[in-house]
């Protein structure tokens, strides 16, 4: 771990003023201890620093800024929570459990109980991929500004099966899978003010920007996360498959949010986690479900459709089959 300075930001405005770099940027251009980056829960940040792949000059701690850890729910506006809300806060929220089942399932299956107590949702959405080459200081990969992707030619059993051209890492946030399925939005605050964007737009594929997984700029901070309201007809579920049931990263996870009218599916949002460098919507599969009564046969069709276009690598072909099963099970579980 390199030496760094530390400052507790008293407000969002001051934090924005103090920061000069995103973490991805700090890892590519602002190296050698010159970057000033913000820190939330710190679990991912410390990991990167301990690995020696991030050498910040200064950490700007957001923990002391009041109001960022609030969670609220109402029927009309849905669910809103600040970036410092922890995964455990979501897990323990009766509203989340009652109204946002897919999110609840994602929260309870994330990381370890200890990490869930520490990791914040802002940090969760901003965390860097777990690709073992990216995480190793011995491999200067594309994501760190290098020219080689070691995963494409190396050990890629846990890597992506979609959008594998530039960098086949998978996005590490399993909560994002659920949040995108709920059509969540984030509020980013920067020097110019606030902007709200859909989470599906927030994450950027490697083809667009290999060194950064999202659109936040070097002076933007996530200040709010919002999920639209759900109603009687909303059915949702989430399944994560890790190699282990205990603490593990996802080999594949699926979130499904269905809008049902009796037996008929009016609208569907299907998202795959650990399938691509971003939480991946499967629109084609959604189309299969829309307007139909959901039967096992229809779901199998949708599952097939969802995997069309997959380009598995040398060691992760099993994921194609895995995702078909997971999608089938998630939809069936959602409709009960």
């Amino acid at each position: 771990m390199n030496r760094f300075e530390y400052i507790k930001a008293p407000s969002i405005a001051e934090a924005i003023d103090m920061m000069d770099s995103t973490v991805p940027e700090a890892m590519v251009t602002k190296t050698g201890g010159s970057a000033k980056v913000v820190k939330a829960g710190g679990t991912d940040l410390l990991d990167l620093i301990k690995e020696g792949i991030l050498e910040p000059g200064r950490l700007i701690d957001l923990k002391n800024i009041p109001g960022l850890d609030k969670l609220s729910y109402d029927k009309k506006n849905g669910l809103q929570f600040g970036p410092m809300v922890t995964i455990a806060d979501l897990e323990n929220s009766p509203e989340v459990k009652k109204h946002y089942r897919a999110l609840y399932e994602a929260a309870t299956h994330a990381a370890t109980p200890q990490i869930r107590n520490m990791a914040t949702m802002g940090g969760n959405l901003m965390q860097r991929p777990r690709c073992w080459y990216f995480r190793s200081s011995g491999h200067h990969c594309r994501k760190k500004g290098g020219t080689t992707c070691f995963a494409q030619i190396g050990q890629n059993q846990f890597h992506s099966i979609f959008l594998t051209n530039v960098c086949p890492c998978v996005h590490p946030s399993s909560l994002a899978t659920a949040l995108v399925a709920y059509d969540g939005k984030v509020e980013l605050t920067g020097p110019e003010g606030k902007r709200v964007i859909a989470l599906s737009e927030f994450f950027t594929p490697s083809e667009v920007n290999v060194t950064c997984e999202n659109v936040a700029t070097n002076q933007e901070i996530i200040t709010n996360i919002m999920l639209p309201p759900v109603n009687e007809g909303t059915r949702a579920f989430y399944i994560k498959q890790g190699q282990r049931e205990s603490y593990d990263w996802s080999m594949g996870d699926v979130a499904v949010v269905l809008q049902m009218d009796g037996k008929k599916c009016q609208d569907a949002r299907i998202v795959f986690g650990a399938a691509a460098p971003i939480p991946l919507r499967r629109e084609a599969a959604e189309e299969v479900l829309k307007g139909k009564a959901i039967t096992e046969k229809v779901v199998v069709q949708a599952a097939k459709k969802a995997l069309e276009g997959a380009t598995p690598l040398a060691h992760n072909g099993y994921k194609v089959h895995l995702f078909q099963t997971l999608l089938k099970r998630t939809v069936m579980e959602a409709i009960g």
Binding site: W132, H139, F150, Q155, Q243, R244, E245, D248
Partner: peptide, 21 residues
């Protein structure tokens, strides 16, 4: 990793051991 000779899971995160469940 066959290209660099490094153990890619030299940690307790990706080297998977049984836990409680």
């Amino acid at each position: 990793d066959l290209n660099t000779g490094h153990m890619v899971n030299a940690n307790l995160d990706q080297y998977k051991l049984p836990y409680s469940k």
